[in-house]
Design a binder for these strands. Structure first.
Lengths: 233, 233
DNA sequence: GACAGCATTATGTATGCACATATTCGAGTC
DNA sequence: GACTCGAATATGTGCATACATAATGCTGTC
């Protein structure tokens, strides 16, 4: 599997040469045709190997110029954003869910801004708690743009979380994630059973459909929560 | 560019059908050969389009079974981990750097555990502050495994940050990132000029070389710091 | 009916070829 | 010397074909 006539094998060999400093950062490496000859494989194979390395940020490629080893190989951490139920069940814990508040409301300025809505927009505001083995796991504060998802207004969110319902109902085009550390406010303190001011890891996610903003959600994780992810290299 | 005889065009069309619910989550979609016929292109082209969609998590593929639309399209947020100097300069601010403490020390249990070292290991301990326009931006607490990077012991880290020096010096194979919210301790309060207990966004990064752990670093960001990243869809 | 083994099928990959496209470089022109 | 334009070149992509590989399901045997 590590032979240089498979694209994986070629990629491994190129990685090895870069790590071994045979090809140093900034260096121009041989062109695809030459490498193909050296490795005894087709140019297509070398192309795929190098293309994926470029995607990973290890090399930079430009037509006519050639391929060079990246100067500052930008590490990339890929954070997977699963449905919360699955996140909890994957950890071997029992999932619980409770809807706390529910009603239509004007979006606060922060939310309107994040979604690019006017303050006159009608939104559905939900507050819900997700439990792991009966204990609070994360507090969810969500606004749904009723102009984009009108059927949400009369939907029953008391059993299934809006998270899952939206995924099944609305096609999602793109989104944005913001991670920050916030002090626990009075509402969060009550819902999570935590003393006020405690640092909470906070995730804010904006989601857009094909043309309209769909939802903004803020997740307050329990103290000590960690997001862990491998770094691609 | 959106014609269905380029892999981009095929991918766009498949995305469109999924978003339009023509192919719903869980559905089996036609096989590559049939799609190639329909789109009037080679199977290779369809293959590349679907392969990348699978990588993005929008579809799931299994040999013999076929390709089906993902049930819970797992959103992926890719966080780029640049060198801190570049992060600051990219924001149009002036970068500053100061080494606070420097010396060899036994790694604390937490660090030894994260790197998989015994407590007897010799490490270099550095503490440094990164400034943006003269104001504290992030506090860095770093341990370097001297068994893996012996030349670090007598290197001068007062001018250039260990971050950049290590990238240029040691080939990195893999790493792990943990994000959490921590209360500001007394040392951090002094270095960042922040009152104790304030929530700080904390990043912990472990890095391994080819066979040995290289470094563990903890970054304490200023209050209010946000990590923002697009979500792939 | 249980099970081993084989045929089937869809994806995965390699190859040789052709042509597209971006970029560089140098020749020719003023 | 500056500038324009075309040749050269490395990557990007598409195609037809062949074979590899994994998973499924069927078939025959006991």
């Amino acid at each position: 599997m590590s032979d240089t006539n498979t694209w994986q094998g070629v990629q491994d060999e190129v990685r090895r040469r870069i790590r071994a400093r045979q090809w140093k950062p900034g260096d121009l490496i041989p062109n695809e045709a030459d490498l193909a000859t050296e490795f005894g494989c087709a140019r297509t194979t070398v192309n795929r190997a190098l293309r994926e390395l470029a995607g990973a940020g290890l090399v930079e490629r430009r037509r006519k110029s050639g391929t060079r080893v990246a100067l500052h190989p930008v590490g990339k951490a890929v954070i997977e954003i699963p449905v919360i139920r699955q996140e909890i069940e994957a950890g071997g814990q029992r999932y619980g869910y409770g809807l706390l508040t529910h009603g239509t409301a004007r979006p606060p300025a922060r939310v309107a801004y994040a979604l690019g809505l006017g303050d006159a927009a009608r939104t559905l505001h939900l507050s819900a708690i997700h439990l792991a083995d009966g204990a609070p796991y994360v507090l969810e504060d969500r606004w749904i743009n009723l102009a984009a998802v009108p059927q949400a207004e009369h939907h029953d969110f008391s059993r299934k979380s809006a998270n899952e319902w939206l995924l099944e109902t609305v096609p999602v085009a793109r989104g944005e994630l913001a991670i920050s550390a916030q002090p626990c406010g009075p509402d969060e303190a009550r819902a999570l059973d935590v003393t006020e001011g405690t640092p909470l890891l906070t995730l804010e996610r904006s989601t857009w459909g094909l043309d309209a903003p769909v939802t903004f959600v803020r997740l307050w994780h329990m103290p000590g929560h960690r997001i862990v992810s491998p770094i691609a290299g």
